[in-house]
Amino acid sequence: MGNCLCVKESIKVNGRRYLIREKLGEGGFSTVELIEDALTHKLYALKRITCHSQADQKVALAEVEYHNALRHANIVECIDSDLIGAPDLMGNRTSQVLIVLPYYRRGTLHDDLMRRQKAGTPIDEVVVLTMFRSICEGVQCFHTARPRPLAHKDIKTANILLQDDLTPCLMDLGSVSRARIEVNNSSEAQQLQDEAAERSSMPYRAPELFTVESHCNIDERTDIWSLGCLLYAMCFYKSPFEAVYERGDSVALAVISGIVKFPESHQYSQELLGLIKSLLRVKAEERPYIDWIIGTVDELINKSSGAV
C-alpha cells in the first residue's frame, strides 16, 4: 500500500512533530486527537484548548499546571504542552493550549460500561472495589494537595481512562480548583453556582452546587458525592440520576431529594450498597472524607476476597 505519512496533517509541540491520525472527542472549547510521534511512531492523545480571551488562556494554562503539580499513578500524565498564538477579542484571534497525554486504547470507564451493559456482563464486585480504590487514591492526591486542598469537580465515568489492565486514571483537569470555599454573599454564591453549571456534569453534581446558599462553606466533599454516583455507575452502568437527566426532568430536584434506588436484581453485597449510600448524603457534612472511604474499601476488598 505504500507509506502515506506524507499526506497526514502534522503539528509541533515544543518543536517535536506529531502526525494527526484522527479525532477522538470534542468538548465545548477543546478537541482531543490521536497523534503519532513522527520519529518514534508512538501514539499519544493531543488535547487542544481554544482560548478566546486572556481569561480563557489563564484557565487552560492552569490545567497544565495542575497536571504538573499532581503527579500520581491514577491521574493522567501530561507528557508535554505548548501555547500557540495570543487571544485578541477585538481582532477575532484565538490562542491554543496544547497538551500531549498518553493514549489509552481501551478508552474511558464510560466506554467500558456501555460495552458491558450491551453484553450484560457487569463488573465483578472485587474488581469494582479494586478499581474504585485506585480512583479514590487519585482523588486523595487532589484533596491532600499543598498549599491548599484541591477538588476535581467533574468526576464521572467519562473522565476515567482505563489502561489495558483496567488501572483507572482521572483525566480532564480543566474543572480543578481549590476545594474549600467560603461563600459570603449572593454574588459569590451565584458565581460558584454558575461555575458548577459550566464545569460539572449534572448527573454527578453535588446537591450543594445546584443552589448555592449566600452564606456557606463548600469543601472537597463535593467530589465525594460524585464518587458515590461513580461507584453506583460502576455497578449499574449509569449514575443514579442519569435516567432523570435523559428524560429531561429536574436533576436538581432528584438530587436534593436524596432518593437513590437500586435495581431489584443484582450481584452486589449490601455492604457495597451501604458504601454508595454513605457517599450520597445530601448534607455535605454527613459525607465521609476520602481517607475513610479508602479504609472502608480495603475492608470490603478483604471480605469479598475471603480474607480473614
Rank of each mutant, 00 (worst) to 15 (best):
I20Y: 09
G27C: 04
G15L: 02
F29N: 12
E33T: 05
E22G: 09
L5N: 14
I20D: 10
A38G: 00
E36K: 05
T31M: 12
I20H: 07
R16N: 10
R21L: 14
L5T: 14
A45V: 08
S30P: 10
K47F: 00
E22I: 00
K23Y: 08
R48N: 08
L5G: 09
T31N: 11
K47S: 02
T50F: 06
Y44I: 03
K47W: 00
S10C: 08
G25A: 08
L39I: 14
F29V: 02
G27E: 08
Y18A: 01
L46H: 01
K23N: 10
L24N: 10
E26Y: 08
T31E: 14
H41Q: 15
E33G: 02
Y44E: 00
K42T: 14
C6W: 15
E9Y: 03
I49S: 11
D37T: 00
T40E: 11
K23Q: 14
R17M: 11
S10R: 11
G15R: 06
I11Y: 01
K12E: 13
R21C: 14
L46C: 00
C4D: 15
N14V: 07
A38V: 01
G25V: 07
T40I: 01
L34D: 04
C6D: 15
F29D: 06
R48Y: 00
N3P: 02
K47A: 02
A45G: 05
G28F: 06
T40P: 04
T50A: 07
L46V: 02
K23T: 12
V32N: 06
A45T: 11
K47E: 02
R17V: 11
K47D: 04
Y44K: 01
Y18W: 12
G28Q: 10
N3I: 15
R17W: 04
I35K: 02
Y18D: 09
T40C: 05
I11N: 01
E9V: 04
H41N: 13
C6I: 15
L39G: 11
R21G: 12
G25L: 04
L39P: 05
A45Q: 05
S10G: 02
T40Y: 01
I49A: 03
G28Y: 06
D37Y: 00
E9P: 05
S10A: 07
L5C: 12
R17K: 15
C4M: 15
T40D: 07
L24G: 09
N14L: 12
V32Q: 07
T31H: 04
E33P: 03
I11R: 04
N3A: 13
E9L: 08
I11E: 05
E36V: 05
L46D: 01
R21H: 13
L19A: 00
I49H: 02
G2C: 09
G27M: 07
G27Y: 07
Y44Q: 03
M1Y: 12
